[in-house]
Amino acid sequence: MKIALIDYGAGNVKSIEFALERLGYSSELTSNAKTIKAADRVIFPGVGEASTAMKMLKSTGLDLVIPTLEQPVLGICLGMQLMCNYCEEGDTNGLNIFDVKVVKFNNQLKVPQVGWNTIFDLKTDLFKGIEENAYMYLVHSFYVPLHQDSIANSSYGVDYSVALHKNNFYGVQFHPEKSGKIGEQILKNFIEIQ
């Protein structure tokens, strides 16, 4: 099993590497398009600001590679947001894999949302064995509204999507690598997706 972790200078990639290690998988942190294309699974991490991250992605040319990938791909946090067609943060055009716009939380709320929230309406094998209303760790100021590609939702002021799926592409807003044993199970499920 070859797992490629996309390296474009963004985010806390170490935690994902370590979470995979705890599951018994090694991964390769890489920005090489060939290596990414040849991997069995691709993880697209991301922490930070959308327009900066998108610029970094473009400078590596990976913005053109990611949408053409055919193996299972998992975007995490900002990675998922960049897979959408637009992010309000930094007025950023995304990779257009999911046809939805990422918008900012209502400013009546504490923003960023930081902490553990429940996820529900779980669909697909990504959530195999995960109970409804499981707790996941989230840190974000922008969110994906409820959408036809949603495979898990959460609630913070509004009900919104915390996981998306279309063809071979998956995205999660929460951090499975930081969400205890249940988060690790979701990573394992992604690796075991047929």
């Binding site: 806390n12 935690s15 979470a19 760790y137 930081k178 205890g180």
Partner: peptide
Amino acid sequence: NIPFTVGGGIASVEDVALLLKSGAD
């Protein structure tokens, strides 16, 4: 497998880069 914060004596962007790169959230 849960988030953690590291503090104490952090005085520069480089200090932060090193800690985040090492796995701090």
